[in-house]
Amino acid sequence: MIENRPGLHLAAHLLLIFGVCVVALPVWVAFVASTHGPTAFMSGTIPMWPGPHLVENYSRMLDSGLSTSGTPAVGHMMMNSLIMAMCIAVGKIVISVTSAFAIVYFRFPFRGLAFWCIFVTLMLPVEVRIVPTFQVVADLGMLNSYAGLTIPLIASATATFLFRQVFLTIPDELTEAARIDGAGPMKFFRDILLPLSRTNIAALFVILFIYGWNQYLWPLLITTSADYYTIVAGIRRMADAVDGLPQWHLVMATAMLAMIPPVLVVIFMQRLFVKGLVETEK
């Protein structure tokens, strides 16, 4: 810093510690709640420190879930969430990277039109056209399937633009050297382009995994069979039942389980996460 003002510095630290606490508060409260028994909330005083039922609550939810709410075991829902997040992340990356390759490295009729078709999807988020999109998926018989959960969500203008940007920074000479070395388009794509984009792919994967895992409205509509419930959408069904019979400790355990995988991804891949976040906004 420019001048040495210990007072100001201390104030900044205090401010940050306060900020971190505010940000962490809801998760702490949820964590505490998830470690108590069902009676802890009846007494009228809210516990502020963890109780003794952590293992019991979590293992119960993972293995059998809350039968009264009609949701399956949380472990099963987490598996569905994982499948959905992986399919969406991988699917978006695959179709975007090939689209960007076609748009950047080829000249063909209606190239501009194809580009605009992809661009327009930016202006059509699923929440906005939810009813007719649901209709299409229902007509195609894709309700209650992993395909229905994932495929309608994997078109991505953002990812296509990201890869387009990456490809545009790759020097022309590299492509020319590859052509002279006898590499056709697909060989160039596999041997040169993909390896050179791998950190961008990894960064994007982190963002898209979180995006896929956190989907709510779409799985809520598409899945009516408990077999396909994802954890984020399943929580609401669980909370619905709670209104009648408060099982807060179990709902909060589920909420913790729902946020742990993506939060761990952000914490342990922070560098890739930040890169992905900044790049997708370019």
Binding site: V94, I95, S96, T98, S99, F101, A102, I103, Y105, F106, R107, F108, P109, R111, A114, C117, I118, V120, T121, L124, R129, P132, T133, Q135, V136, V137, L140, I151, P152, I154, A155, S156, T160, D172, T175, E176, R179, G184, P185, M186, F188
Partner: peptide
């Protein structure tokens, strides 16, 4: 530098365009 192919780019774009048409443009 560009590759000379008319068919390949459409094959590469096909999945993205198909999903865009069926699940974005058509519902819109």
């Amino acid at each position: 530098t560009i590759f000379n192919s008319q068919l390949l780019p459409w094959l590469l774009l096909a999945p993205q365009l198909a999903i865009t048409f069926i699940f974005f443009l058509w519902p819109a």
